[in-house]
Amino acid sequence: MITAIQESKGDKVFLICTYIYLSVALLIVLYPLIYILSASISSPQAVNSGQMWLFPKDVTWAGYELVFNNPKIWNGYLNTIIYTLVGTLLNLAVTLPAAYALSRSDFFGRGWFMAFILLTMFFSGGLVPTYLVVKNLGLIDTMGALILPAAASVWNIVVARTFFQSAIPKELQEAAHIDGCTNLKLFWRIVLPLSAPIIAVMALFYGVGHWNSYFPSLIYLNSEDKYPLQMVLRQILVLQEMSAETTGAAISGDIAQAMNSKAETASLIKYGVIVVSTLPIIAVYPFLQRYFVQGVMVGSVKG
């Protein structure tokens, strides 16, 4: 390649260093991903004994077969998709209007409301009181228990509010008002269309949160057919951990046998399950990434 200007020696060294540095960084990030992928199609024995460290060894598809034939995993998958879609839509429906209202300087009592909302970020009600509220609302063991109590996140409201404050010029709103636009119409027609980055970011924040959450389902759900994927996953993985823990203790033969067969299945399918459950998020991320960078930055830079 011929370049117009000859690179100086220093530039070359700098360039080489940069490439080396980036390659190392890439390796560090890529290795766990490749490891998980390889492990998911290697025999558990090779993985556990450390013989499999990069490329698959003793390739077996038994793990994936078990995953794809396990109705619980698919049911969990379906539930997770429902929780993520419905939950995220509700989150957006709550967060964006709240954030916009709080961003308007002509909103009466804005500081007061903001202080109240922020308070809940620093002092939460605690596990048992929250459980009692959910219970008295009749939400225990319903899908709503996973969606409604998590409808708004204060942190995300603050981020969105900052975006609205800095990205939507006040003059634009005044102009719209002069043209006879109502507040609601202003929000729908002007503010939201200009806020694509923040909507994408919020959707991603909330969506990933729903996708990965298991604790609320552990607390609020009693029936297995409502469990999200992470809960099913946890059941598989933790039982395997437990088998090492409890087979030391005085337990019945029945339990030991159960644990052992559970542990065998688990070591076979755990990496497969990890791949299957994280793939959708990894697949969506590149498409949202450009908004992601833009959206988060917007909150911090004021122009």
Binding site: L85, V86, G87, L89, L90, L92, A93, L137, G138, L139, I140, D141, T142, M143, G144, A145, I147, L148, W188, R189, L192, P193
Partner: peptide
């Protein structure tokens, strides 16, 4: 805007329905 409205209303409605099951 129309599509968004529909989506939002739909989402809200679905979550409310889901919430009613256990009372």
């Amino acid at each position: 805007s129309k599509a968004w409205k529909l989506l939002m209303v739909g989402g809200l409605g679905a979550s409310l329905l889901a919430g009613c099951g256990g009372s």
